[in-house]
Design a protein around this nucleic acid. Structure first.
Lengths: 205, 205
DNA sequence: CATGTAGGTACAGTGGGTGAAGTTAATACC
DNA sequence: GGTATTAACTTCACCCACTGTACCTACATG
């Protein structure tokens, strides 16, 4: 077992080997979570399926739940990048809207399977609230950057960020369960909430 | 240690003794979390401080984090009761609004300390997303009850519930950190979002 | 080819959480 | 009042997520 997966000796760089191990761990983790349930799957089993030791699992993912979202960090980073790539003087909420729309448009069917898993396994939903909170922090930071770092702006930015992510989570989850178009549902619900009254939130109080 | 806290033999009913143990566990848990931090406090220490065994802790709270919110279940139940106590034909969103307003009005300063702890200890925030999800479920169920059990209503109800709780969480957390009036901030942000466009959400699409 | 180092392993430990069997004392019932 | 029941708690043994540490080994690179 120790050398089985290293037998396919290619001119792979070490980094590629590492990525392959990580990919394999995530793949088997998601498969096992789906097949037998989250609680019924141990990290030991995931690691064994991927042909590595249990300790190695935690060199790639900080928690058992994190293996279900292997590209989370990259996606958050990508989201932040797009958020800040807007034209300099565009309304921050408009920029936020178009970035979120683009993100929801790009959701592949294969990812919807992930959201279905998320919706159906409460352990995963509970344990990986961290996932959402990263987006909330990113959105709040973006808004504060544009609105100024006052207490009032901070409260408002956090409130909006939490509400946005809450709606997105609910509709993506529904997308996973019912196969409905998450983008359309989210867009409709979301932007009716965050319409005109919030275009200039700090001066219309 | 085994009989120390049973020495004060009163004509207490067993139930009162049980409640006293629970209260003591929660009190020491919150104190220890505040004093030395969440991760630096073990369940064993909490139990020892309350004069009971570690196993007993889990007869009262299902997780370590749950001890920080000892009255959570009662509060959710109370919330649901008030929600459904409205006049029969009142607009569900109006009822929701007044119930939430009342809840936020009733937040005592001592509870704000709790929210401060919540805001400052990410482990607690992450680990007890369950707290929020109970409210989300309650609100969504209430809206579905009034709107009908269609997929569309369900998606919409969940989205609104998540957004509401997101805003409430953000502002309560700000209330804990900055001591600002959570009710005022939440009310202002929240009800501008959920204003007129949502008064008749199922027929104005 | 020598050497540093990245990726992995083995091992031992901590701590949250559970199941099961036993103890004690309050209570219910006669 | 005496006996049976049972609720609250304890002890013990266990599982599993997660961590620290020391070690190994093969790739990389000068």
């Amino acid at each position: 077992m120790t050398t089985s997966k290293k037998a396919d000796r290619q001119p792979n760089s070490r980094e590629q080997q590492r990525l392959e191990t990580r990919r394999s761990l995530a793949e088997h983790a998601i498969r096992l979570f789906s097949e037998r349930g989250y609680d019924e799957t141990t990290v030991e089993e995931i690691a064994a399926a991927a042909g590595v030791s249990a300790r190695t699992f935690f060199l790639h993912f900080s928690t058992k739940a994190a293996a279900a979202f292997p590209d989370h960090d990259a996606r958050v980073h990508d989201f932040v990048t797009r958020l800040n790539a807007g034209a300099p003087h565009v309304n921050p909420l408009s920029q936020l809207r178009s970035t979120l729309d683009a993100r929801l448009d790009g959701e592949s069917p294969s990812r919807l399977v992930r959201y279905r898993l998320l919706a159906e396994v409460p352990e995963l939903r509970n344990e990986d609230a961290r996932t959402d909170r990263d987006y909330e922090k990113a959105i709040a930071a973006y808004l504060i950057l544009h609105w100024g770092d006052t207490i009032e702006a901070e409260v408002r930015a956090n409130a909006i960020a939490n509400a946005l992510i809450g709606v997105a989570r609910a509709t993506l989850s529904a997308g996973g369960i019912y196969g409905i178009d998450a983008r359309a549902a989210t867009a409709e619900i979301l932007w009716r909430m965050f319409g005109s009254p919030f275009d200039d939130p700090l001066h219309s109080v």
